[in-house]
Amino acid sequence: MTDTLLARLDQFPAVALLGPRQVGKTTLAEWIADQRESVYLDLESPPDRERLDDPVYYLSGHADKLVILDEVQRMPELFQTLRGLIDRGRRKGQKAGRFLLLGSASIDLLRQSGESLAGRIAYVDLNPLDVLEVGPAERDRLWVRGGFPDSFLADSDAASMVWREAFIRTYLQRDIPQLGPRIPAETLRRFWTMLAHDQGGLLNAAHLGRGLAVDGKSVARYLDLLVDLLLVRRLPPCHANVGKRLVRSPKVYVRDSGIVHRLLGLGDRDAVLGHPVAGGSWEGFVIENLLGAVPEGTEASFYRTAAGAEIDLVLDLPGGKRWAVEIKRGLTPKPERGFHHACEDLKPDRAFIVYSGDDDYRKSGGLTVIGLKGLCERLQG
C-alpha cells in the first residue's frame, strides 16, 4: 500500500486513507511522515483539536509540510477549510501532497470530502491483512482470527478472542455513540450477531426486524451504519439482462472473519469447522480477499435466479472482462449444477472455483480450480 499512497500524494493535494479502526492506518501514516517533513494531528485528542480552533491560521503555518489528520470524520467542518487552503496553494504553484486524511467511517468522510474536495482528493482503502501478506501455513489462522493485525498476531487463540471482544465493545460503547446514532449497544450487538449467524445470506429485513422487535426502517438504519463503518459488506445482485427472474436482495457479510467467529463465540479452528457458519464464513473470507486484490474500477456482485442458477461472485473487470467465481471449502471441490446454468446465462470470459487447496488445475467446460492466493495474484497481476 505504501507505493500506492505515495503515488497518490504526489498527484493529489489531499489523500484519504480509509479503513476500520485498528487496521494499521496510523502506523502507515507515521511511516509516510518519516519520509517527508510533516505534522501529525489526532482529532480524538483534545490538545490537537484545540490547535484547530482557528484552522486556517494553524494550517497556513504548515503550508510547506504534509499535514496528517487522523480520525478526520470527528471534525467534518474542516473540509470546507481544506478546500480553501488547497485552492490558495494551487494558485501559488503547490499542487500535491498537502493533506493526508485518515478515517474509519466512510460515509461521513466521503460525503463531506465529496462535497468540498471534488477533484482535489483521492481515496485509498486499507484493508485487514490478507492471504498475500501471510505464509501458506498461516492461512487457517488468518481465517479463524481475522485480518486485524493485533488479533492475527496474538500469542494464542484465547488472547486473540479477548482482543476481538474489546474491539467489538469499543465500537458499540464508544465509537458509534460518538458518531451520533442513538442505538442501544445491546440491540446493535444482537443485530451484528444475527448477521454473523446468517453470513452470506440474502438480506431479509422483515426477519431481522422480528428478531429485534423493530421495524424495517430501523433494520435499514442499523445495516447502513455497519456498512458505513466498514464492518459489514452489502454485495449487490448482478442485474444482467438474461430474460430470467433474478434475485433482487443483496447478500450481507460481516467483513472480517475473526469478528464473525467472536460474535458467535467460536474460539479456534475446530470450533469454527464444527459450526454451521463454517461455509458462509469461508465464503466471506474469500470474497474479502478477492475484493482487496481486484484492480481499481472493478464491479463486484453475485448472480442468482429464482430457478436456482447461482454464481457466488461476479467480477466485472476494467476493460470489459467478466469473471465468475464459485467458492468451495474443502480439497475436492465440485461445482453445483446451478453454477453451470448461471455461466450459460452470463457467459463469463473466465470461470473459477476457489477452494481450500493451493494447486491450480483445469476441469471440463473451461473451469479452473484455483487456490485463494493464486486467484488474488492473478487479479493483482
Rank of each mutant, 00 (worst) to 15 (best):
G211F: 02
F167R: 04
L172D: 00
R174K: 10
R169V: 03
F191H: 04
I183G: 06
D198K: 06
G211R: 02
A213L: 10
W192N: 03
T193I: 09
I176V: 13
G180K: 02
R182G: 12
R164E: 05
A206R: 11
E165S: 09
R182E: 13
T187M: 14
I183K: 02
I176W: 04
F191N: 01
S160K: 10
H207Q: 14
H197V: 14
I183E: 09
P177F: 13
L203M: 11
H207I: 07
G209E: 06
D157S: 11
R182L: 15
A196L: 11
W192M: 04
L179N: 05
R169Q: 06
L208W: 00
G200R: 06
I176S: 09
P181K: 08
S218Y: 02
L202I: 08
Q199A: 02
Q173I: 10
L208H: 02
L208C: 07
T193Y: 11
G201K: 06
F191D: 03
M161P: 01
G211C: 08
V219N: 00
Y171N: 03
A185N: 04
G201E: 08
G180W: 01
A213C: 08
A220M: 06
I176G: 03
W192F: 15
S160W: 11
P177S: 14
L179W: 00
A185C: 05
T193K: 07
A213F: 11
V214T: 07
I176D: 05
R169W: 00
L172W: 00
E186L: 14
A185S: 14
A166V: 12
L208R: 01
A154W: 13
D155S: 15
R164V: 04
L212M: 09
R189N: 09
E165T: 07
A159P: 11
Q178G: 06
E165R: 15
M161A: 14
P184K: 15
L195E: 00
I183N: 05
Q199L: 03
W163K: 07
P177Y: 14
I183S: 05
L212Y: 04
R189P: 00
V219W: 00
W163T: 06
L203W: 01
L172R: 00
V219M: 00
R189F: 13
A205G: 07
D198H: 12
P184Q: 12
R174T: 03
S218M: 13
N204Q: 09
G209L: 03
R189E: 12
E186Y: 15
A185M: 10
R169S: 05
G201H: 12
Q199H: 11
A158E: 15
G211P: 00
A159N: 10
A159Y: 15
H207A: 10
P181E: 04
F167N: 12
G209N: 06
Q199G: 01
A213W: 12
V162D: 13
M194F: 13
L203N: 01
Q173D: 15
Q173A: 15
P177K: 11
L208G: 00
D198Q: 12
D157F: 14
A220Q: 08
T170R: 12
S218Q: 15
Q199S: 01
D155C: 07
V162I: 10
V162G: 07
W163Y: 15
R210A: 14
A196D: 01
T193V: 10
N204I: 02
T187E: 11
G216R: 14
V214A: 10
R169T: 03
A166C: 09
T193W: 09
R210V: 13
A159E: 15
I168C: 02
P181H: 03
G201M: 03
D155K: 14
